[in-house]
């Protein structure tokens, strides 16, 4: 082990779902990592805030619907979920548009949490 304590890992989600695979496969990474019981945080920034938009229906594009799975994050031990308020505002989203209750914070807060991490993985 590189550290004699839990490793702090942040998933930095900046990509919207469906247009590319990053959000979906990023979610897979989060759920698998959970088995290793380290200290996890997820940040939804830029187009990543669309990952958490509720009432999505992908049946018309023939792609697997996966956004509902973000709701298991807490059960899987990803307890710190930060969403960037400015990214939401820029995109016309309010907390009511999201599928899970989240902590809406400013970029500085996310930056400070980021600065404490051992690993930041982008999706």
């Amino acid at each position: 082990m590189a550290r004699d304590r839990l490793t702090k890992i942040m998933f930095m989600c900046r990509q919207a779902p469906y247009g590319s695979v990053y959000a979906y496969e990023g979610l897979e990474v989060m759920l698998i990592f959970a088995a290793y019981e380290q200290e996890y945080a997820a940040a939804f920034v830029d187009d990543g805030v669309f990952d958490l938009k509720k009432d999505k229906d992908s049946s018309g594009i023939g792609m697997k619907e996966f956004s509902t799975t973000y709701r298991v994050m807490e059960d899987y031990g990803i307890e710190k979920v930060y969403v960037d308020g400015q990214s939401m505002k820029d995109r016309g989203l309010t907390p009511d548009d999201l599928m899970i209750p989240v902590e809406v914070v400013d970029r500085d807060t996310i930056a400070k949490v980021m600065a404490e991490q051992d690993v930041v993985l982008p999706f």
Binding site: A2, T7, V29, F33, A35, Y36, L121
Partner: peptide, 14 residues
Amino acid sequence: LGQLSEICLEADRM
């Protein structure tokens, strides 16, 4: 993917 997790835990830097 567990192997990626192991790398993150074992390596000093990703």
